[in-house]
């Protein structure tokens, strides 16, 4: 990988609590074109996993790209991934770089 290539990281969050417990900002056609985590709530599944961090930019959710998705669409995809009962986890591909 070249120096300018952002490093991405796959993070699996187990559905260990009733909520995912993250707040996101951003989406296509905003200043932050990919959703970025702005809050992680204590006691939520994301907090329990210990791996997602404030500032992480979400590239993919369960293999679905966030690129080109407007804020509400990105939020809907994440919410549905958490609600889906066929999986006990949600996979996030994230990067720390914008």
């Amino acid at each position: 990988p070249g120096l300018l290539e952002p490093t991405s990281c796959l993070i699996r969050v187990a559905k260990s609590a009733a909520t995912l417990g993250i707040a996101i900002e951003g989406g296509a056609n905003t200043r932050q074109p990919l959703p970025r985590i702005v809050t992680i709530q204590r006691g939520g599944s994301a907090h329990n996993s210990g791996k997602l961090k404030v500032g992480h930019v979400i590239l993919e959710v369960n293999g679905t790209t966030m690129r080109g998705k407007e804020h509400r669409e990105a939020a809907r995809i994440i919410a549905e991934a958490f609600k889906m009962t066929d999986k006990d986890h949600v996979d996030f591909l994230v990067t720390e770089f914008n």
Binding site: E25, R31, T39, H71, R72, A75
Partner: peptide, 15 residues
């Protein structure tokens, strides 16, 4: 001129 300066801020959604 940077394009992103003309783009609006995003709303925030709690999930």
């Amino acid at each position: 001129r940077e394009k992103r300066l003309t783009l609006p801020p995003s709303e925030i959604t709690l999930l």
